[in-house]
Computed example of a mutant assay.
Amino acid sequence: MASVAGNDLADSVTVADLVENIRLDVIYGDDLLDDREISTSDISRPGLELTGYFNYYPAKRVQLLGITETSFAKGMSHDELLSVMRQMCQPETPAFVISTQLEPPEELLQAAKENQIPILGTKMTTSRVLSNMTNYLEGQLAERQSLHGVLVDIYGVGVLITGDSGVGKSETALELVKRGHRLIADDRVEVYQQDEQTLVGAAPAILAHLLEIRGIGIIDVMNLFGAGAVRSETDIELIVHLEAWSADKRFDRLGNGDETQKIFDVEIPKISIPVKTGRNLAIIIEAAAMNFRARSMGYDATKVFDQNLNRLIQQNSNKKSK
Rank of each mutant, 00 (worst) to 15 (best):
R250A: 13
G52D: 11
R23V: 03
K320M: 11
K74V: 00
Q197S: 14
R231C: 02
D34F: 00
M222E: 11
L211N: 07
I38N: 02
T162C: 11
G29T: 13
R214H: 03
P274E: 12
V304I: 12
K113W: 01
R253Q: 15
T125L: 12
M1C: 08
I273S: 08
S99G: 03
S246Q: 15
A112K: 10
I219E: 03
R279Y: 15
Q116A: 05
K276I: 14
I218R: 14
Y56D: 13
G75L: 15
M88L: 10
L64N: 02
N280F: 13
H181A: 04
M133Q: 02
V157C: 09
V167G: 01
K178A: 13
E114H: 01
N316Y: 08
I284K: 06
A288C: 14
V189Y: 11
Y299R: 12
R182F: 10
R179A: 15
P269T: 12
I236C: 06
M88K: 04
N115A: 08
N316S: 03
Y53R: 12
R231I: 00
I184H: 03
I216W: 03
L242I: 10
D79L: 09
P269R: 11
P91Y: 13
T162W: 09
A202H: 00
P94H: 10
I313K: 12
I67W: 02
F264W: 02
